[in-house]
Design a protein around this nucleic acid. Structure first.
Lengths: 209, 209
DNA sequence: CGAAGAATTGAGGTTAATCAACGAGGGTGG
DNA sequence: CCACCCTCGTTGATTAACCTCAATTCTTCG
């Protein structure tokens, strides 16, 4: 069962309801009846699944504009958890089903998500540990302004979460970070998760075009 | 460049054009301008991506009703290849964009695909070789009538293709099949890819609910 | 029948997982 | 304020799983 922390029930423009969640809180649980579709206003949300024995796989980390809680049947097929403090718009099932504007926007974000899931499947199925971590760091930077030279970026996920995202163990992730640091491809800053990244040297390690 | 084998350009009911492809032919290539969206009428299509050094990851094997060639930008993000002889309906870009009936159907299949991609990410990131192969065989049976007892199923993909689908090598896939055969969980029939499967004994090996 | 491709099996090497110890913050309560 | 605990991260030693290389068999098709 997930525990819901609601902000004041402010009505958003498009029939949606604004809800706030603090960091690390479960927003939706796998198997719950799918009563709403959520769109992120601010913050980041991790989407994952658990195996019966506790193994976890995180598929994607979504940011503002993205949607989750979409399912082909009546139940959520995965877990959504707040990585940061998050503000979402919740659209009640049935209220938006017939809105073609909503469905058009939904289709757009689903296309982007499928594309990202494809890329992530290549990572999980075919990349080495260092390639995975390099790809992860580069992914953090995507969208950040300058894509050349040294760039600073904040790593919000723990080693354990990164491991569950990359299909590795936390030790292997830690070793890969150490490896990149030793080779001066990344450098740690005053330890609040901030790192500096040498993009031209990192990019070739990802084995991506 | 993919080479297109077209059937007689029969017009399908909904402004789509019917096209036939023989087995193993490339239907769309990554990077090509996305001029059409395809819906499978009959047969199966493998969706994959290649890394620069030739490593391949197959994400999904699609059947009738499913769509491919959907992309958030103007270019295909992955390869589509005929696993069997395939008949598809090709919908030209621009002709269907404003059809809400088409978009509704598109959204429906995208939701199913995302769900499948989630499940596959768990397999790639968190399952052992035998668990992956067991999951693969069970997936072949999904939709086949009786889900209990012994069931016959045809394995259409080569060991190499299965390996690229499961993120393994073909030898590891072969060993996993041999392992399942030795334990009488599957049995080979007169070798045209047909195997018999003991579902009650196979299912626990997949580590899925 | 012969050739080419597919599958199987074995031996040995490599990568990442596992098991384990230790250190660095951050919060809590005495 | 300090001692304690707990989580997180790092690093080392060992193990296990899977990959690589190689040889052989099986299957299909001309």
């Amino acid at each position: 069962m997930s525990h819901y922390y609601e902000s004041a029930g402010v009505e958003s423009p498009g029939t949606g309801r604004l809800i706030d969640f603090p960091s690390r809180v479960t927003i939706i649980d796998e198997g719950e009846p799918a009563n709403a579709i959520y769109q992120i206003v601010s913050g980041n949300v991790m989407i994952s699944k658990l195996l019966p024995d506790g193994r976890r796989q995180i598929f994607e980390v979504l940011g503002p504009g993205h949607m989750f809680g979409v399912t082909p049947n009546g139940h959520y097929d995965c877990i959504a958890e707040a990585l940061t403090d998050v503000r979402v718009t919740a659209f009640e099932k049935g209220q938006v089903d017939r809105s073609s504007a909503f469905n058009a926007q939904l289709a757009d974000v689903l296309k982007i998500q499928i594309c990202a899931l494809h890329e992530h499947a290549v990572l999980l199925g075919r990349k080495s540990a260092v390639e995975r971590v390099a790809s992860y760091i580069l992914e953090l930077i995507e969208g950040t302004s300058p894509n050349e030279g040294w760039v600073s970026v904040r790593v919000l996920m723990t080693r354990s979460e990164i491991a569950d995202y990359l299909g590795l163990t936390l030790e292997t992730v830690s070793r890969a970070f150490s490896h990149l640091k030793r080779d001066s491809i990344i450098a740690y800053e005053r330890y609040d998760g901030l790192i500096r990244v040498n993009i031209p040297r990192l990019r070739p390690l990802t084995s991506t075009y």
